[in-house]
Computed example of a mutant assay.
Amino acid sequence: MGSLTRCLSLFCLAASMAPVPALAQQPAGLLDARAGLLEAETRQAIAEAERAELLARLPPAQAKPLSGAVDTRQFGAAGLARAFDLALELAQEVCAVLPADRPTLLYDPATAQGMVAARAVEAALVRLSEDLAARNRELALYIEAHTPAEGAPRALPLAWLAVPPATLRAAADLAALFKGDTTLAGIGYGEGARALFASAMARSCPARLAGLGSGYLGELDWSRHERLLGRVRALGGHRAILAQHAETLARLAGSAKGELKKELAAMEDAVRVHLKSVDAFVDSLKAGEASDKSPLFVAARYLGQAERSEGALVLDVDVRLEGMSVVRDNLFTGQKLALSGVAFLWYRLHEADGRLVKADALRRITRPVEVKLGGNMAGDAFWAAAPGER
């Protein structure tokens, strides 16, 4: 009972015990009624005093008491710590099923497309160089045969009068292979969920992985880029010889007459068409530019990945990570935070030709860890490190 209540009680008791001369002459029944009324008034005053004291301790009337509402906005990212732990555990489980005698490449659609396009660029450079070398030899014999005092005229190679070969035209459009864009949509954890799992696997079994799909692919390994540039230079050498043959044909056509003049002029036109096609292909490679806009530079990156992953199995994986954070606010018990994580994972292990080796689907849900925001209910292991880091 508060001090105000005690004062009121003592005052009323003293008042009731004081002698009143006028009341002593009144009947006993009236005195008892007056005493009961005074006692009732005293009890009412005491009750009001106690109520006022209690209200003074409570919040203002406009502040409604909390009823244990659930709020996840304040600590929405905290639950991702539990999902992160699950990713590390699942990576160890997937690593355990990978064969130890063969490397494995994590499949990424954009990387796989880039590897195929890079091989096509390199193959086109080789084919064009070989094709131009063969045609230059054939054209040299033709020019020699039509040079005065060098021998009998040689039959016109009709292939030169046709349009450039199909392989040359296709090679000129190889840059289009690098204009496509493959978008991977992340869910739950975000765009980095799959990258997180790939890094977790690399941490668990780095010796078994030939590559993580996307990411760094060897931009600084200039030996492969120099090799491709060497092929471009070789193609340029054959192109220079072809240009010399075109000039020689022009001089021969200028000194010839009749049908021979028309034949040599037609041959010169065909050679110059080939020159334009070769120039268009070389220009499309953007060999002098070291950026993603240069198919030659991009091809050098993906060729390195193709060499490292030769003979490897292909692991196609998808993962969804979600964290749940629940904050319970109560006026009398305070705040409590519970953290839980959910992970869904499927994977398929393939041979390079597409044959399925193994597949599985896994899911994990962690038991909620309760954290008292005013103290430490979770163990030190939860705060210090994730599983496997200790």
Rank of each mutant, 00 (worst) to 15 (best):
Ala256Asn: 07
Ala133Leu: 07
Arg43Gln: 10
Glu259Leu: 13
Asp108Glu: 15
Asp71Lys: 07
Ile365Asn: 10
Ala246Phe: 07
Ala386His: 07
Arg308Gln: 14
Glu93Lys: 15
Val20Ala: 09
Gly36Cys: 05
Leu275Gln: 11
Leu337Arg: 05
Ala381Ile: 05
Ala110Ser: 11
Ser255Met: 10
Asp316His: 10
Glu41Asn: 07
Asn136Met: 12
Leu373Trp: 06
Ala47Asn: 06
Ser255Trp: 00
Pro387Thr: 01
Gly213Ser: 11
Lys293Arg: 14
Leu209Ala: 07
Ala145Cys: 01
Leu105Val: 03
Ser67Met: 09
Ala385Arg: 12
Pro19Arg: 05
Tyr142Val: 02
Gln113Tyr: 03
Glu310Phe: 02
Asp173Ser: 14
Ala83Glu: 01
Asp181Ser: 13
Asp353Glu: 14
Pro387Lys: 06
Phe197Trp: 11
Ala299Gly: 03
Ala81Phe: 00
Ala210Cys: 06
Leu128Met: 14
Ala40Gly: 12
Ala24Ile: 04
Asp101Trp: 09
Glu50Trp: 01
Val232Ile: 10
Ala207Cys: 01
Asp316Trp: 00
Ala14Lys: 04
Ala172Asn: 03
Ala176Asp: 14
Lys372His: 13
Phe84Glu: 04
Arg57Trp: 00
Ser255Arg: 13
Phe197Arg: 02
Glu268Pro: 01
Ile365Ala: 09
Ala15Ser: 07
Trp383Arg: 12
Leu54Met: 04
Tyr302Val: 01
Asp85Thr: 00
Leu13Val: 07
Leu80Gly: 00
Leu4Ile: 05
Gln25Ser: 14
Leu158Tyr: 07
Ala81Arg: 14
Asn330Thr: 07
Ala207Gly: 12
Glu268Val: 03
Val314Met: 08
Leu331Ile: 02
Ala18Phe: 09
Gln305Gly: 04
Cys205His: 03
Leu158His: 05
Gly218Tyr: 12
Gly311Trp: 09
Ala384Glu: 13
Gln92Asp: 10
Asp279Leu: 14
Ala198Ser: 10
Gly288Asn: 15
Ser214Asn: 08
Lys262Gly: 05
Asp131Met: 08
Ala49Gly: 09
Ala159Ile: 03
Met377Ala: 12
Ala185His: 05
Ala361Tyr: 02
Pro387Leu: 02
Thr182Arg: 10
Leu125Cys: 07
Asp101Gly: 09
Gln26Cys: 12
Arg208Ser: 13
Met1Arg: 12
Leu55Tyr: 11
Lys286Asn: 12
Asp85His: 05
Glu39Asp: 15
Val314Pro: 00
Ala40Asp: 12
Ala81Lys: 08
